[in-house]
Amino acid sequence: MSIEIKNLSFIYDKGLSFEKTALINASAEVLEGEIVGIIGHTGSGKSTLIQHMNGLIKPLEKDKVFVDGEDLFDHKKEIHAICQKVGMVFQYPEMQLFEETVEKDVGFGPKNLGLNEEEIQQRVVEALDMVDLDYEKMKNRQPFFLSGGEKRRVAIAGTLAMKPKYLILDEPTAGLDPFTREQILDEVMKINKEKGITIIMVSHDMDEISRLSDKLYVMHKGIVALSGKTKEVFAQHEKISELGLMIPQVTEVLLGLSKCWKDIDYSIFNLDKAVKEIIRCRKSHGN
């Protein structure tokens, strides 16, 4: 089971004088259970790529997007059923909060599915729990008076209440303070590991993406410039610098030290392990 995109190209406003190419021959595969990271500069095609994954953008001409083997735009099928498998949390999702209470906001999606009251409530409880919010404490609060971190969580819960199999997060930690950022990242990990929801995450923060993702796609001017296991991608640091992107700070340190210590393992992202590796090298090289 997977989301599959093969040789996808996309042009905004095709045929008009200001048409803009956003994707060129991009391929991506998201396997069930993975955390997939997508990085790249603003305007590199990240958003266009992810919006194809749940049918928000219809591919041009013959290009196809498959979710669990089903063509998203096969006219014989009901697109909603397939798209519902893929939940999307946009950048600054709290801007979409609109209801009077947290309960109503998170329950908005399930209500539109025509579920009964009891089932809606159960979904709201579960969704809030996944983002570490207590239903009883939160249900009657007004979304506009929550803190930034709480708003972000409520917005994410709104998508989780639709019980997606795949969850797309477009820069889920942008604009948050580091404390809240860490909490949200922990929650994303938990949603993946405990609830088994596949995660596709766009980020500008190389440190967080290196820690979380199993697989990485690096977008550059509409092309998938690099892809593979996260550690393999960051090992190609020269290519990444060429694209004007950063590498995780821990990788920067380990790579820098590899000038002195040829045998240092620079594919480590965990800080404790990285420090152990530095100490090991220091001992074995005696400096």
Binding site: D177, P178, F179, R181, E182, D207, P248, Q249, V250, V253, L271, D272, A274, V275, K276, I278, I279, R282
Partner: peptide
């Protein structure tokens, strides 16, 4: 005091703890 240092400071802090 709810401050979270950048990765590099975390690395340095851990190295110091290890006695470097």
């Amino acid at each position: 005091i709810k401050l979270y240092p950048p990765e590099i400071i975390k690395i340095i802090s851990r190295m110091k703890q290890e006695g470097m």
